[in-house]
Amino acid sequence: NQASVVANQLIPINTALTLVMMRAEVVTPMGIPAVDIPRLVSMQVNRAVPLGTTLMPDMVKGYA
């Protein structure tokens, strides 16, 4: 099973992602693959992402 990107903290809307905000976890359903974490750094979320939420492609501006 491939790990997905999960929020390590509450990420407010329009926040630029940093490594500290994300962790890799095997979850269902799968979200953004953990291998993409370096690519996500400095991209912004388009909604508030609660702690423990799996990041989906439509939550990150410019990802999809």
Rank of each mutant, 00 (worst) to 15 (best):
A34E: 04
L55C: 02
V45H: 00
V20T: 06
T18H: 10
T15Y: 06
L10W: 11
A24G: 15
V27T: 09
G52D: 09
P57W: 08
V26R: 05
P38F: 11
P38N: 14
R23M: 07
R39C: 04
K61V: 15
T18F: 04
L10N: 13
N46V: 13
P38I: 14
A7G: 03
A7T: 12
Q44V: 15
V27H: 04
N1G: 09
V49P: 02
V5Q: 00
M43V: 04
T15H: 09
N14E: 06
V20A: 15
Q2G: 12
S42C: 03
L40D: 00
N1A: 13
T15K: 05
A34Q: 08
T18Q: 11
V60E: 01
Y63D: 04
P29L: 06
V45R: 00
V5S: 04
P33K: 10
V60Q: 00
R39W: 10
A48M: 11
N14V: 03
V27S: 07
N14Q: 10
V6D: 00
D58W: 07
S4W: 02
G31D: 00
L19W: 06
L19Q: 08
T53A: 12
I37L: 09
I13D: 10
L51H: 12
A16R: 08
L55I: 12
K61A: 13
N1E: 13
P57F: 07
D58M: 12
L51Y: 14
K61Y: 15
L10S: 13
M43G: 04
N8Y: 05
R39D: 05
Q9A: 07
V6L: 07
R23T: 09
V27D: 02
R39K: 14
P12S: 09
A16G: 06
L17M: 10
P12A: 10
M59F: 12
S4V: 03
A64G: 15
Q2V: 13
T54M: 04
A3G: 08
V20C: 03
P50A: 13
A34F: 11
V35P: 15
A64T: 14
L40A: 01
M43R: 10
M59R: 03
A64C: 03
N46D: 13
I11V: 11
T54H: 03
L51E: 14
P57V: 14
M30N: 14
V26W: 12
P50D: 12
V5W: 01
Q2F: 10
V20F: 08
Q2L: 07
I32F: 03
T28H: 08
A3K: 10
T28Y: 13
P29I: 10
M30G: 06
S42R: 12
L55H: 01
G62A: 08
M21Y: 07
Q2E: 14
N8Q: 10
A24K: 13
L19P: 15
D36I: 06
V41W: 04
G62W: 05
A24P: 07
N8W: 05
D58K: 11
M59C: 03
A7C: 03
R47N: 07
V5D: 02
M59H: 09
A7N: 02
L40V: 06
T18Y: 03
A34N: 05
P33F: 04
V49E: 02
I13Q: 14
A3R: 05
M22V: 15
I32W: 02
V35I: 13
V20I: 10
M56N: 06
D36Q: 08
N8L: 05
L55M: 11
Q44A: 07
Q9I: 13
M59E: 03
P29A: 09
K61Q: 11
V49Y: 02
L17W: 02
R39I: 09
N8I: 13
S42T: 08
N1K: 15
V5P: 01
E25W: 06
L17T: 00
L19M: 07
V45F: 01
M59W: 06
T15G: 15
M21V: 04
V60N: 01
L19N: 10
L17N: 00
I11M: 07
T53W: 10
V20H: 07
N14W: 08
L17R: 00
T53S: 06
K61E: 14
T15F: 07
T54F: 02
T18G: 08
A34Y: 06
V26D: 14
T18C: 03
V49S: 02
L19K: 06
A34P: 04
V45D: 00
M21Q: 05
Y63C: 03
A7L: 04
V35H: 11
T53Q: 08
T15S: 10
A7I: 05
P50S: 11
I11L: 06
G31A: 04
V60M: 08
V5K: 01
M59I: 07
L40I: 12
K61L: 15
M21K: 04
R47V: 07
L19A: 11
V60T: 02
K61M: 14
M22N: 00
M56P: 01
A48N: 05
A16Y: 08
M30Q: 12
P50Y: 05
I37P: 00
A3V: 07
T15I: 06
L19C: 03
A24R: 07
S4E: 01
A16D: 13
Q9V: 05
I32R: 00
R23S: 09
N14I: 02
V60L: 11
N8E: 12
P29F: 06
M59Y: 14
D36C: 03
L51S: 15
L55A: 00
V60G: 01
T54D: 00
I13M: 13
V41D: 04
A48W: 14
I13F: 13
G52F: 06
R23N: 07
M22P: 00
G31C: 02
Q44T: 13
S4G: 07
A16T: 07
T18K: 04
T54L: 06
M43S: 05
L10T: 07
S42Q: 06
A7K: 01
M56W: 05
L19V: 13
L51P: 08
V26S: 14
V6W: 02
T54S: 09
P57C: 04
Y63L: 06
I32N: 01
A3Q: 13
R47P: 03
P57E: 10
M21H: 09
A34K: 09
L55G: 00
V26K: 14
V6C: 04
I13V: 12
A34M: 15
N1S: 15
V27A: 11
V26Q: 12
V20L: 13
L19I: 07
A48L: 09
N8M: 15
N1H: 09
P29T: 09
K61W: 12
V60W: 01
A7M: 05
M30Y: 13
L51G: 14
M43C: 03
S4P: 00
A16N: 08
D36M: 11
P33I: 06
T18P: 00
V49L: 08
I13C: 03
D58N: 13
V45Q: 00
M43A: 15
G31L: 01
N8K: 12
M21S: 10
A3S: 10
A34G: 10
L55T: 01
M56G: 08
Q44S: 14
Q2H: 11
V5N: 01
M59L: 07
A48Q: 07
P57N: 08
V41Q: 13
V35T: 15
V27E: 03
V27K: 12
L40Q: 00
V35E: 13
G31H: 01
T53R: 14
Y63W: 05
G31R: 02
D36T: 08
P57M: 07
A64K: 03
R23Q: 06
L40S: 00
N46Q: 10
M56R: 13
L17Y: 01
I13N: 10
T53P: 00
D58Q: 15
N8S: 15
G52S: 08
G52C: 03
M22Y: 02
G62N: 14
V27W: 03
L17G: 00
R39Q: 08
T18E: 09
T18A: 07
E25N: 09
R23I: 13
P12W: 04
T28L: 12
N14Y: 10
M21D: 07
M30L: 14
N14A: 10
L40E: 01
A48E: 10
L51C: 03
R47E: 09
P50G: 13
L51I: 11
V5A: 11
R23L: 05
L19S: 10
V6Q: 05
V49F: 02
V26G: 08
P29Y: 05
A48I: 05
P12F: 05
T28I: 10
T28V: 10
P57L: 04
A64N: 12
G52A: 10
N14C: 03
M43F: 13
A64M: 13
P38R: 05
N46P: 03
Q44K: 14
P29M: 06
T54N: 02
P38D: 15
V60Y: 01
V49R: 04
V60S: 01
I13E: 09
M56S: 08
G62P: 09
V35D: 15
V45P: 03
A64W: 05
V49N: 01
I32G: 00
D36R: 05
D58H: 09
Q9R: 09
G52V: 02
M56A: 08
L55P: 01
L55W: 01
L51A: 14
M30P: 14
S4Q: 02
K61P: 15
G62K: 12
